[in-house]
Nucleic acid binder design. Structure first.
Lengths: 95, 95
DNA sequence: TTGACACGCAAGTCAACGCTTGCATATGAT
DNA sequence: ATCATATGCAAGCGTTGACTTGCGTGTCAA
């Protein structure tokens, strides 16, 4: 069920990709690669990032849209809501 | 940093342990084993569960307390709050 | 058509992970 | 002291996962 979701989140590079899409949504594969290198110091190959994006998409965290030879990637954080609901937080009673 | 947290959540058996502690907090290792078998249909050995509990404890999701030859396990969901804050949800505008 | 560009596919490698196996330690009851 | 109970430690095994490597496909410009 949500196994794909938690597996997708278990990799630090994939979490950084989510951070990057949070900062700028709708990027292509090459844009994500370049910004991961320049902003986050990650030296990941294009193929590695492509495979990470597949995992994120199968988890429902990323949706894609093709236009010509470009493929744009969009973040979808809605699957994350199930996590907080599964193990509820204790009530904050102080200020 | 939170790498231990996401790694801990990436295994289905560990997530079921969190469910079980949500249902009844403060169980011993043997109690957890028995209830995983009877309630969740998991045929996991004691050693496997023990190792899972170590992972959950290192992630800060479970705290332990020794009393004699018993070791009680307590759930702590507070680390989960960071997940929703890292990738914020779009605003819900309906009711 | 030619060539550069953006991306996809698939096999192979290496390390990490989950689990087992066997033994060890410590507490409590008789 | 003896024994069952509750848990801990560590080596080994099989699988999964992340990454590389090489080639293939489709798009756009000249």
């Amino acid at each position: 069920m949500d196994d794909l979701l938690f597996k997708a989140l278990s990799d630090a590079t994939r979490r950084t990709i989510l951070d990057e899409l949070t900062d700028r949504d709708g990027q292509t594969l090459f844009e994500i690669c370049n910004r991961l290198i320049s902003k986050h110091g990650l030296a990941s190959s294009r193929q590695a990032i492509s495979q990470h994006l597949e995992v994120l998409e199968s988890a429902g965290l990323v949706h894609t849209q093709r236009e010509g030879r470009y493929k744009f990637h969009f973040l979808d954080t809605s699957p994350l809501g199930a996590i907080g609901q599964r193990w509820p937080q204790p009530k904050e009673t102080d200020s």
